Simulated scan of single mutants.
Amino acid sequence: MSSGSTADPMFQRTQDFGDTPTEIRETDHYQHEYVHDFVERWDDLIDWDGRAASEGSFFIDVLKHYGCETVIDAACGTGFHSVQLLRAGFEVASVDGSPQMLTKAFDNARERGFILKTVHSDWRWMSRDLVGRYDAIICLGNSFTHIFNEHDRRRTLAEFYSMLKHDGILILDQRNYDALLDGKTGGPSHKFYYCGEGVSAQPEHVDDGLARFRYEFSDDGSVYHLNMFPLRKAYVHDLMHQVGFQRVTTYGDFQSSYREDDPDFFIHVAEKSYLSADEDDDVSE
Results as ranks from 00 to 15, higher is better:
residue 69 E to L: 04
residue 69 E to H: 10
residue 70 T to R: 01
residue 71 V to H: 01
residue 73 D to S: 00
residue 74 A to V: 01
residue 75 A to G: 12
residue 75 A to K: 06
residue 77 G to H: 07
residue 78 T to W: 10
residue 78 T to N: 09
residue 80 F to H: 12
residue 81 H to S: 04
residue 81 H to Q: 13
residue 82 S to N: 09
residue 82 S to C: 12
residue 83 V to S: 07
residue 83 V to C: 10
residue 84 Q to C: 03
residue 85 L to T: 06
residue 86 L to A: 05
residue 86 L to V: 02
residue 86 L to W: 13
residue 87 R to P: 06
residue 89 G to H: 10
residue 90 F to C: 05
residue 91 E to V: 08
residue 91 E to A: 13
residue 92 V to N: 02
residue 93 A to K: 05
residue 93 A to H: 03
residue 96 D to R: 00
residue 97 G to Y: 05
residue 97 G to N: 08
residue 97 G to R: 03
residue 98 S to C: 10
residue 98 S to G: 10
residue 99 P to K: 06
residue 100 Q to N: 13
residue 101 M to P: 02
residue 101 M to S: 01
residue 104 K to R: 09
residue 107 D to E: 10
residue 107 D to F: 07
residue 108 N to S: 05
residue 109 A to H: 09
residue 109 A to I: 04
residue 110 R to G: 05
residue 112 R to V: 11
residue 114 F to P: 04
residue 114 F to N: 02
residue 115 I to T: 15
residue 115 I to E: 14
residue 116 L to S: 01
residue 117 K to R: 14
residue 118 T to M: 00
residue 119 V to K: 06
residue 120 H to G: 08
residue 121 S to H: 00
residue 121 S to Y: 07
residue 122 D to G: 02
residue 123 W to N: 02
residue 124 R to T: 05
residue 124 R to L: 06
residue 125 W to K: 14
residue 125 W to S: 13
residue 127 S to C: 07
residue 128 R to W: 08
residue 129 D to N: 08
residue 129 D to F: 08
residue 130 L to H: 11
residue 131 V to F: 01
residue 132 G to S: 11
residue 135 D to A: 10
residue 136 A to C: 04
residue 136 A to M: 05
residue 137 I to G: 01
residue 138 I to W: 04
residue 139 C to E: 00
residue 139 C to H: 12
residue 139 C to F: 07
residue 139 C to I: 03
residue 141 G to H: 04
residue 142 N to W: 11
residue 143 S to D: 00
residue 144 F to M: 02
residue 146 H to Q: 08
residue 146 H to V: 03
residue 149 N to Q: 11
residue 150 E to Y: 07
residue 151 H to F: 10
residue 151 H to P: 00
residue 153 R to W: 03
residue 155 R to G: 00
residue 156 T to Q: 03
residue 156 T to E: 02
residue 157 L to F: 08
residue 158 A to E: 02
residue 161 Y to M: 00
residue 162 S to D: 03
residue 165 K to C: 03
residue 167 D to H: 14
residue 167 D to T: 13
residue 167 D to Y: 13
residue 169 I to K: 01
residue 171 I to Y: 00
residue 172 L to P: 02
residue 172 L to V: 10
residue 172 L to G: 01
residue 173 D to L: 04
residue 173 D to E: 12
residue 175 R to F: 14
residue 176 N to G: 08
residue 177 Y to A: 07
residue 179 A to D: 11
residue 179 A to I: 01
residue 180 L to D: 13
residue 180 L to V: 14
residue 182 D to N: 14
residue 182 D to W: 05
residue 183 G to C: 04
residue 185 T to K: 15
residue 185 T to Y: 12
residue 186 G to M: 15
residue 188 P to V: 13
residue 188 P to H: 08
residue 188 P to K: 01
residue 189 S to I: 10
residue 189 S to T: 15
residue 191 K to Y: 13
residue 192 F to S: 00
residue 193 Y to S: 06
residue 193 Y to A: 04
residue 194 Y to E: 03
residue 194 Y to F: 14
residue 195 C to S: 08
residue 195 C to K: 14
residue 195 C to R: 15
residue 198 G to R: 13
residue 198 G to K: 15
residue 198 G to Y: 14
residue 200 S to F: 15
residue 202 Q to G: 02
residue 202 Q to C: 10
residue 204 E to M: 14
residue 206 V to A: 06
residue 207 D to A: 15
residue 207 D to Q: 15
residue 208 D to K: 15
residue 208 D to G: 12
residue 209 G to I: 12
residue 210 L to K: 13
residue 210 L to R: 14
residue 210 L to S: 15
residue 211 A to E: 13
residue 211 A to P: 09
residue 212 R to P: 08
residue 212 R to V: 11
